[in-house]
Design a protein around this nucleic acid. Structure first.
Lengths: 335, 335
DNA sequence: CGCCCTATGTGAATCGTTTCAGTTTATCGT
DNA sequence: ACGATAAACTGAAACGATTCACATAGGGCG
């Protein structure tokens, strides 16, 4: 092992200046000591390249300046972008990010969050897959937590960013209905894990209202996960006339599958998504989707957490409204 | 503030069992104490839901089980995917990830890495923008560091994953040359920050060899960053016949710009990328690019770091070879 | 029976920082 | 000039886990 030089400590500064460790600690934050001392300590600290050890500080009970971010699956492009937006937003508040990725497994979520909390993060931002169980009460009462689109059983929240799934699903289904589609396959991630997510419930309810024949199909998150499934659905005898993907990432895989089978979208079949990823306007054909503003989401979530940490216990809940974005991947149902 | 119940500590277990803190510490790792004691301690620990505080452990000097990952810009889709692949790979080794994002600013990189190191990560994985300066010597001799495609001035590395940029650039330029293109605009990120990156140097050299007129243009990373720039380039009187984007993300923005101006790709102009993001085969038209295997990259980088942490000081360097992927976005130069 | 060795356990220091509770000066008002 | 008070600074105890050095007891063996 290479010789490992230690980083400078407060103790070294104390020796260098002839002061006590205590005095140096105060001086570094400019309190309780004379201006002359502060200056002298600063000079030595700068020269040594000193910076306080966040680990020691955390142990003593202070803030770590780090927020844990837990996402359901980084394989999903939208969530990748969300993670980026959140990280960027946190940075504007001088906060750092520890990112964890449940990788599509709801059973992992609580464990990962606990691990994050054990790292002494100041707060948690959780975009969960779904209420797969576990009791978040203990965790969330110890660590301020803001959720993004999802429920955490037993959790006591510092804030909540919800998506109006009902309206979003409704608009999309009405759009498809108005184009004449009656038999629709809905590709959803995480159905097995939590069969009664609000999104799926909304799909069932609205489909019933509109008289649509909607089959909900379990689907892996990633591009490569949705393609084979799409192939299977597309090759059925009674192929649906439209496929409603509950994430744009899934839709990309479906588009790819259609291409492989020589199916023209939207002539032969309509394919629509549900997050409106930035690339959805560039794929072929440009994807009809429902937009949930990533920037607004990230800003709200981070804002709630920062407010809470600053002691503001106000009303920390917002519902992000969907925006229907009709592009070229949806068209009249083939007769 | 809500009552904040403390997490269980080793001390509580000691009181509960009537043992000393020391004995409990040993018992928890199954050393030096009688089997009966181990069992008793385990029982109490389980019942209390005890897990060791990573912060305290880190302070004492042990491993944290956390790796810092620093990427040049999470706004880039390829780097997003890389970050995901790396995180996933780290997880298979039982390691956690702290992700930092320099957001396109090379001047931030060293500071962010230092901050990561101060968090007591066991190692660092750095995919830098470029050698914007700073001295990485002190940091890297304290914290094992593996680079992914980039040089860190003064760094002493635990491993290195390099991309054979020269070959990649060469193949792409020859491809364009063979299609009759002679006037090419090269859109690069981070030119200002480090004008002599290996990639740009390779472009200049190979262009000279082939007799190509290549202009290198500074470009922001993101989709929205490259679009306006593309518009500017495309509206010139002596418009280049091909645009070579040094990242697929940039190419996506350019494609968007072309569409706005009513330019057909590749009939009116060819557009090619340089990472081969998974979505590049789905955009319209499918993008010609150069593939660097993200999985191989992530696996190699993480492998090097894990080996190093295990004490293996072997040869930790690999060069990832490019694979030219010709799709539909490149065609014969218009006459 | 006396000696040493092992098994099992404990006390205390350590990591780097913060902070409570003092202690020493110097200064001020009366 | 004297006690009160404030300013400047220090000691020591936390935070939670690890680990070195030591203590105690019992067992084995000549």
């Amino acid at each position: 092992m290479a010789a490992t030089p230690k980083r400078p400590t407060i103790k070294q500064i104390a020796e260098e200046t002839g002061l006590s460790v205590t005095a140096v600690s105060y001086a570094l934050r400019g309190e309780r000591v004379s201006a002359a001392t502060i200056e002298r300590v600063q000079a030595v600290a700068d020269q040594l390249g000193y910076s306080a050890d966040p680990v020691a500080r955390a142990l003593r009970g202070g803030r770590t300046g780090t927020i844990g971010v837990l996402v359901g699956s980084l394989a999903d492009f939208w969530q990748q972008t969300l993670a980026h937006a959140v990280q960027r937003e946190l940075r504007t508040h001088g906060l750092h990010t520890i990112l964890a990725d449940a990788d599509g497994d709801p059973a992992e979520e609580l464990a990962l969050a606990a691990r994050l909390a054990a790292q002494r993060v100041d707060g948690l931002l959780v975009a969960p897959i779904g209420p797969a169980g576990g009791d978040w009460a203990k965790l969330t009462e110890r660590t301020p937590t803001v959720t993004i689109s999802g429920r955490l059983p037993g959790a006591e929240l510092a804030g909540e960013v919800a998506f109006d799934q009902t309206t979003g699903v409704g608009e999309m289904l009405r759009h498809l209905h108005s184009l004449g589609h009656r038999r629709i396959a809905v590709l959803s991630w995480a159905v097995e894990a939590s069969p009664d997510r609000p999104t799926e419930r909304a799909v069932r309810e609205q489909a019933a209202t509109l008289g649509l024949d909607c089959e909900i199909v379990q689907c892996a998150y990633s591009l490569d996960g949705s393609r084979p499934l799409a192939l299977e659905v597309l090759e059925r005898a009674d192929r649906p006339t439209a496929i409603f993907c509950l994430s744009d990432s899934i839709a990309y895989g479906v588009l790819h599958g259609c291409r492989e089978l020589g199916l023209q979208v939207p002539r032969d079949i309509s394919v629509v998504g549900f997050d409106d990823h930035p690339l959805s306007r560039l794929v072929d054909p440009p994807l009809t989707s429902v937009n949930w503003s990533i920037d607004r989401t990230a800003r709200a979530a981070v804002g709630f957490l920062v407010d809470y940490l600053a002691g503001d216990r106000g009303d920390h809940r917002v519902v992000i409204a969907p925006t229907m974005v009709v592009r070229d991947s949806s068209g009249p149902a083939p007769s």
